[in-house]
């Protein structure tokens, strides 16, 4: 952890993300009619150059992700990613499809886009509410691959160092897992922390 980021600040970022995730969980709960088990978010600072595979399963595994870029007093990306083998089950449960082959085809990807969009908007909506700041957003889009590759391919992050906040959620009834990621440019972190401390 770089010297200039205090553990209290990390703690505050965690809590802000927590509130956003809690709101998304309620929406997901309404859609799936199942309880969502949440984990305590993890906040870390990565050097994208040193980031490599083989350390963390959730960063390596093939995922289906919906991501949203945001720009404002702080900038970054929020993404929700599901391991590929569980995502088709989730979509099928939500659309009430009769049991068939759980494969992620283009129609199910469309549905996943909406599900991911609802989750991400829940997170971002409550964060910008709490911080009382306006952010600009790009169009959300769908992507497949490992989280590591997605982070590495990210051109928007000019900085080598990036802050990643991550929380995982589980829908036990459906045997589905997912991860919510937020990547922040370190350059914008100071402003974020300043805003948090105004609360």
């Amino acid at each position: 952890m770089p010297e200039d980021i205090k553990s209290e600040d990390i703690d505050a970022i965690k809590e802000i993300l927590n509130i956003g995730i809690g709101r998304s969980a309620q929406m997901l709960n309404c859609f799936t009619k199942s309880h969502i088990t949440l984990s305590i978010p993890e906040v870390r600072i990565f050097d994208t150059e040193n980031l490599k595979k083989g350390n963390e399963k959730y960063l390596d595994e093939e995922s289906a992700a919906v991501r949203l870029e945001f720009m404002g007093i702080f900038s970054g990306i929020t993404a929700v990613a599901f391991p590929k083998d569980s995502v088709a089950k989730l979509v099928m449960a939500m659309t009430g499809e009769a049991a068939g082959t759980p494969e992620l085809d283009s129609l199910r990807i469309e549905t996943l886009k909406e599900v991911g969009n609802i989750i991400i908007n829940g997170v971002m909506g409550s964060i910008s509410n709490i911080l009382k700041t306006h952010l600009n957003y790009a169009i959300p889009y769908y992507e497949e691959g490992s989280i590591i590759d997605m982070i590495k391919a990210e051109k928007k992050i000019y900085d080598n160092k990036v802050l990643m906040a991550m929380a995982c959620f589980t829908i036990k009834d459906l045997n589905v897992e997912g991860n919510i990621f937020m990547l922040l440019e370190l350059g914008s972190l100071e402003i974020l922390i300043e805003n948090i401390n105004k609360i």
């Binding site: 979509v91 469309e110 969009n117 908007n121 306006h134």
Partner: peptide
Amino acid sequence: QRIADVLKGGPPAIFTSQL
């Protein structure tokens, strides 16, 4: 609610015919 969030300047919202 989701349309209102967009009008307030929130992130784009996606709606499909599946859900």
